[in-house]
Amino acid sequence: MEKSHHFSLSDLLCGEDDSCLNERGIKDLGSVSEFDDEYIKLLIQKESIFQSDGNGFSIESEGDWLKCARLDAIRWILETRAFFGFQFDTAYLSIIYLDIFLSRRSIDDPKLWAIRLLSVACLSVAAKMEECIVPALSEYHVDEFNFERNAIKKMELLVLSTLKWKMSLITPFAYLDYFSAKFSGELRCDELLKRAVELIIDVIKEVNVGEYRPSIIAATAVLASHDYALMEKDVEIKTNVIPSWESLEKEDLFSCYNLLRKCKFAKSNTPNSVILPNLSSSQSSSDHASENSSITSTVGVKRRLSYPDGDRCCPPRP
């Protein structure tokens, strides 16, 4: 496992050869074809069909424990993604599963092991959906717990049936190439795309995945990777080239863009700290008081996570 004491996305990215990015066709800077337009249109349609019922889970209304457990799960998923060299969308997909699971079932009381087991099952199922090489269950390392493989399988089945066997959910990564071609044309480069990937990963920590449509997150991440100072009108003009969104979703665009912008500024203002409380697995959680709670509080109408001090949020590890 990649041990990064100060866990941040750039660690994850730098630790790799970026091949995961290139695989996604970034080298291909050709223009967007009609075929792509049709495909993206279909994707946007599909995301509303398949993802509209996953919105019930509001992190805000859950206890601090669950918020923190979710962040902890995301941290574990991202670390494990890096360890196995999974694509980012595999990790993202597993976080969608996690959020849907939490929205449809409740885990009573602080049961860290249950969240851990759930994280393993979600990532394992996502890897089976997305990856060429799927690790055996025994290869998933969870520091504090030793799960029997049958227990993981049982949890996989629970995740799958909770998803109602609808595992093919669209992630923002599906749109990245297309939107960067649409919005930035020749300005596209790997560096910007990498930044967009970081932003997408940052935002999933901030909001439940059901809060914004994947296409909205992708579009705003591409915009924000270029320019953090767009006005609402600019965002609207830029995104007018995508006809599929309805007016309601257009409002989301700017609020999501703002959220990304704030993530970005929070990150650059507090280089070591960050959006996550209790980032590293080796540190106890108390020394992460940051101004994180202010990051998101002013943005938009969407419910979102607030970050109380880490020590209140996360129980000490067993």
Binding site: S124, K128, M129, A136, R149, K153, L160
Partner: peptide, 11 residues
């Protein structure tokens, strides 16, 4: 044993 739900079944 040990692989969990088969990827084939999932897909």
């Amino acid at each position: 044993d040990g692989d969990g739900v088969s990827p084939t079944a999932i897909r």
